[in-house]
Lab assay of single mutants.
Amino acid sequence: CHSECLGNCSQPDDPTKCVACRNFYLDGRCVETCPPPYYHFQDWRCVNFSFCQDLHHKCKNSRRQGCHQYVIHNNKCIPECPSGYTMNSSNLLCTPCLGPCPKVCHLLEGEKTIDSVTSAQELRGCTVINGSLIINIRGGNNLAAELEANLGLIEEISGYLKIRRSYALVSLSFFRKLRLIRGETLEIGNYSFYALDNQNLRQLWDWSKHNLTITQGKLFFHYNPKLCLSEIHKMEEVSGTKGRQERNDIALKTNGDQASCENELLKFSYIRTSFDKILLRWEPYWPPDFRDLLGFMLFYKEAPYQNVTEFDGQDACGSNSWTVVDIDPPLRSNDPKSQNHPGWLMRGLKPWTQYAIFVKTLVTFSDERRTYGAKSDIIYVQTDATNPSVPLDPISVSNSSSQIILKWKPPSDPNGNITHYLVFWERQAEDSELFELDYCLKGLKLPSRTWSPPFESEDSQKHNQSEYEDSAGECCSCPKTDSQILKELEESSFRKTFEDYLHNVVFVPRKT
């Protein structure tokens, strides 16, 4: 048989008469490798580009789960590009990614509803959504962080984005990388972005840091009482949809009607710091009717980097990364020049730590249904340095008659930039024990000054392991946590139920 035959053949030295091919099969003959313009397919066939392209389009058009959109890589027609490569849609070739590779997620039936953290986790790592997304989240724990972890990498949506009755959302900033909504599939009414009845939605994105392009379709905003109209108009300008909307697409009466839409800028007039305090004062603000001013709200939190936005980490279910302080308005003076500047002394802060701070007014709604208010920009203030805590785990070892090696770990709280350490030492008198000992005694162990690591005695271990207080009263049991108490109650309830079950099964009433 021919060298490319495997198993047997019907005619000697003829690659077209093989029972099976050793390498690849091409047009009725066995070959060692697939010549151009053919590609290896499933490690035994040679196919042309049209064959591989037909497989790709067949799966793409069917949208069946589990099928493969075949691509070409290293002269092979394979189910998908290997790690580190992405497909070129024009020629199906796998090309190296520039940075992290995109991950295209194809949605069944063309859309997916995100109504819980669990459903959001199914899209973790996706960068391109081939379909439409509907966000409908009523509640949950730590929602802002969970949504950002699972949806934060999405850069492109081919269909539309719909935010509907998501009472738990305060902001859409968890879509931190969303840059493009194509609108290839539109919501009824030709809408590519749809926001309806979101009672706590206050911000779409921080438009000073976020760009969003909507290729096709219109915007729809109705019944978002805490979303200011200025935020919607800003989205029109940034996304390129200005002029597409009709009169009733953006409701003037049901958007922002319960919001404090600040239209003035508060400026800080005085800032002073110490290692654990920050004193702030800002310019006074009074609405047209000074009785509408209820006070100020001061927001602050630790910020290692200057990239904080107002609604980071917030949701309507209680999660809030900001510390909020309510401040009463100052006494009002008739003389504008003698107006008191409101302020606040922030206490209990960490030394040498940068804080993000902003302040906003708290006002009631005027009778004319106009909203007044003022808010400052987010500023960054760093507390002063102070003395560091003591170095940890000092170790001293003498390696000769004239040297001592000293080692330690950095302090747990540096409280500033540590530039150097101060080492103090003092000579001590020799131990009298060394002169009084009889060095001729056998088995004498000389006193040693070398360091030995501390260890816990058996008594201390027994005390720590004991669940009861000892007789001397030195140790006591740790208080039980809520989960331990709940577990004990469940076990007790189970024992009672099981005992009742045994009584009912074992003891049967005697027939009379």
Rank of each mutant, 00 (worst) to 15 (best):
K226M: 09
S376N: 01
L108I: 08
V381M: 08
L180G: 06
D367Y: 14
E236F: 12
L178S: 00
G110Q: 14
P288D: 04
P351S: 09
V238A: 07
E109P: 13
M297P: 00
I157H: 01
K407R: 11
N142P: 12
Q258I: 02
I181F: 01
A195N: 11
S389V: 05
N211T: 11
Y223D: 06
S401Q: 05
T113I: 06
L227S: 00
P304Q: 03
K360F: 02
N248Q: 03
D292W: 11
L143V: 09
S401V: 10
L123K: 00
K350T: 06
K242A: 10
R281S: 13
L279Y: 14
L212C: 02
G318S: 15
P304H: 15
Y191H: 10
P225E: 05
T361S: 12
I188L: 10
N399K: 14
G140K: 03
G318L: 15
P391A: 09
F174M: 05
T273K: 14
A145T: 09
W344N: 10
S400W: 02
D257R: 06
I188V: 11
L349V: 06
L293T: 03
N200L: 10
F174A: 09
M346I: 08
G343R: 12
P284E: 14
F175V: 04
L349S: 01
L153Q: 09
F290R: 04
F175A: 03
N198C: 01
Q245G: 15
Q306F: 03
F174C: 13
L252I: 11
R138A: 05
Q314V: 03
S338K: 12
D206K: 14
N255F: 06
D312V: 07
K112V: 06
E246V: 12
Y372P: 10
L180K: 10
I232F: 01
T386S: 07
A374T: 05
N224Q: 11
E146G: 14
I404V: 14
T353P: 00
K177H: 07
Q203R: 09
R247S: 09
D384V: 14
E246G: 15
R291L: 07
F358Y: 10
K253A: 09
N255M: 07
M346H: 01
T113D: 02
P330L: 08
K337D: 15
I379W: 06
A195C: 14
K253T: 12
N200V: 10
G256H: 03
A144I: 02
Y191R: 04
V325R: 09
F290Q: 04
W352R: 02
I327N: 01
G373D: 05
F311V: 13
W322P: 02
L172H: 00
L280N: 00
P304I: 11
G110C: 05
G125M: 13
T241L: 14
P330Q: 11
G313V: 12
E146T: 04
I163M: 11
F174R: 00
N224L: 03
K407L: 03
S396K: 09
S239K: 03
N136A: 04
S333E: 14
S389H: 09
F175M: 04
A149Q: 13
I327T: 03
N263C: 10
N255K: 04
A149C: 13
D257L: 07
R179G: 10
F175Q: 00
N248L: 11
G110T: 05
G189P: 11
S260G: 10
H210N: 04
I250E: 14
S239L: 11
S171I: 02
M346T: 03
E283F: 07
N334F: 03
D197N: 15
E283S: 07
M346F: 04
F296K: 00
G295Y: 02
D393I: 11
R347Y: 11
E122Y: 09
K242N: 10
F268I: 04
Y355A: 02
E302S: 08
A316E: 15
P336S: 07
W344F: 05
D312R: 14
R247N: 04
E246N: 06
R272L: 11
G110K: 04
S401F: 06
H233I: 14
R370K: 10
P287E: 06
I232N: 01
N340Q: 14
N248K: 13
D384P: 08
R244M: 12
H106C: 09
R244G: 08
G373A: 03
G152H: 11
P329H: 03
T113G: 06
Y191T: 10
D384F: 02
R124H: 15
E231T: 14
N142L: 10
I378E: 01
N211M: 12
S400V: 09
S119N: 12
S158F: 08
Q216T: 13
I378R: 03
K277Y: 15
D393V: 12
S158R: 08
S173F: 06
L280H: 00
Q121I: 14
V238Y: 12
N263F: 03
L201R: 00
N387H: 14
N334C: 09
E262W: 04
K277T: 09
K242S: 11
T323F: 08
S401L: 03
W322L: 02
Q203A: 13
K218Q: 04
E122Q: 06
R291A: 07
L151R: 00
L178P: 00
L196R: 09
L265M: 10
F311P: 12
L151T: 04
K209V: 14
N340L: 11
R370D: 06
E246W: 03
N141Q: 07
E302G: 15
W207A: 04
T254W: 07
V359S: 01
A149F: 14
I357H: 00
L196D: 05
Y160M: 14
A144L: 09
I271K: 14
L178K: 00
A120P: 03
L219A: 10
L219V: 06
K253G: 13
P284A: 13
F175H: 01
A316L: 11
R332K: 08
K407V: 13
K350C: 13
I135M: 05
G313K: 14
N399H: 04
E156G: 03
S116D: 15
T254S: 08
R179M: 11
E146Y: 15
P329I: 09
K301Y: 03
D393A: 15
L227N: 00
Y223Q: 11
E111R: 13
L180R: 09
G373R: 03
H341W: 12
Q199I: 11
L298V: 07
M235K: 00
K375T: 15
Q216M: 14
S173C: 09
N263T: 08
F193R: 00
V397S: 11
G217D: 00
A303S: 10
T353N: 03
K103S: 11
S400Q: 13
Y305W: 13
V325W: 15
I181K: 00
E155F: 09
K103R: 13
Y223G: 10
F268M: 04
F296P: 01
K409E: 14
L123D: 00
G256L: 06
